[in-house]
Structure formats: structure tokens, C-alpha cells
Amino acid sequence: MSETTIDPADFRKVLGSYPTGVCVITALDEGKPAGMVVGTFTSVSLDPPLVGFFPDKSSSSWPLIEKAGHFCVNVMGSDQQDVCRSVSAKGEAKFVGVEYALSDHNLPIIANSIASIECELYSVTEAGDHWFVLGRVLRMETVREDDPMLFHLGRYGGFAERM
């Protein structure tokens, strides 16, 4: 069987035509919030309740979240682009100006996110240049009913119903 060579630019372009939801994964690292923006979040299993996401192996934030052993998936609303830009930044300034509160599981929950899903780390599996992270859901809550933030063709946006 021969391997097909896929051009990375084509791969990104074609798969970029598929919109994804935007979440911010948060944890505490030695008392300070750590976080990363992902567009790869998905539900995985009802029994046990598992969710998953795919951090890049080169991420500087993922090792901090992994070390914590627990994380919160904050589902972003279409009006939270500023939060995504902040948390996407490199270094110490990720949470400057980002409102959050600590949950009973000691996880940062971002203010006004659409939903929060608190998890304990269940497994981490190698998946090419990413990790496939599974979390066992400990607690979840819908915070507000609003349009989710979507990422499509390199841009953030919201959902628009067609009639």
C-alpha cells in the first residue's frame, strides 16, 4: 500500500471549510490560570461521560493543563472574541482582562461563557502532531442561551439561521 502525500496548505484549506465551535480549556497552574483556545472539542461517550479535544504537541499551555490533572471546557459565545484573543496570546498576559471565577473543583470558569464542562483527565493518546485528550466529566452547566462562537476559514463568527 502506498502512502498519499497531502500538502499541509491544502489540508488546512480544505478542512478550514468545515466550521468548528470555539472553546477555551482552563486549569490552574500553581495558583495561576492556564488556558488554551481549541476548535477541536467534542463529546465522546455517555457512559462514562467523556469529552475530548486535540492540543498541538508544540503547545506551551497544554503541559500546564495536563500537569493540573483537571480542566474546564469553556464554550465561547460569539461575543467573546476578545477573550479568545487574550487567551491565545503567548506568555503571562493570557488572562489579563479576562473575568473568571474558580469552581468547587478549583477550575477557572470564564465569565459569560455559554457553558462550562469540568473534567478530570482520563487519558492522553498520541495523534500525529497532536494529542487526543479525554476528560471524564465531573460537572457541567449551561450558563446562558446564546449563539456559539464559530471558527471558519480563519475567522471567528457566529451562527446565522437560514429560513
Rank of each mutant, 00 (worst) to 15 (best):
E3W: 07
I6S: 09
I6Q: 04
A9K: 14
F11W: 15
F11Y: 13
V14G: 06
V14I: 15
P19T: 04
T20Q: 07
T20A: 13
T26E: 03
A27I: 07
L28W: 02
D29S: 14
D29T: 00
G31V: 11
P33A: 09
P33R: 02
A34T: 04
A34I: 00
A34P: 01
G35L: 15
M36G: 08
M36V: 07
V37H: 03
V38E: 06
T40L: 04
T42Y: 02
S45L: 01
P48S: 05
P48L: 07
G52Q: 04
G52T: 04
P55I: 01
D56I: 06
S58L: 15
S60E: 02
L64S: 09
V73L: 10
V75N: 03
V75W: 03
S78H: 10
S78K: 01
S86N: 14
V87A: 12
F95N: 04
F95K: 07
G97S: 11
G97Y: 08
E99A: 15
Y100V: 06
A101M: 04
D104G: 12
N106F: 13
I110P: 02
N112P: 01
A115G: 09
S116N: 11
E120N: 10
V124T: 15
E126W: 05
A127V: 04
A127E: 07
D129W: 06
H130V: 12
W131K: 12
V133K: 15
V133C: 10
R139E: 11
R139L: 09
T142E: 12
E145A: 14
D146I: 00
D147M: 03
F151L: 11
L153F: 08
R155E: 13
G157Y: 01
G158S: 11
G158E: 11
A160L: 09
A160N: 05
E161G: 13
R162Y: 10
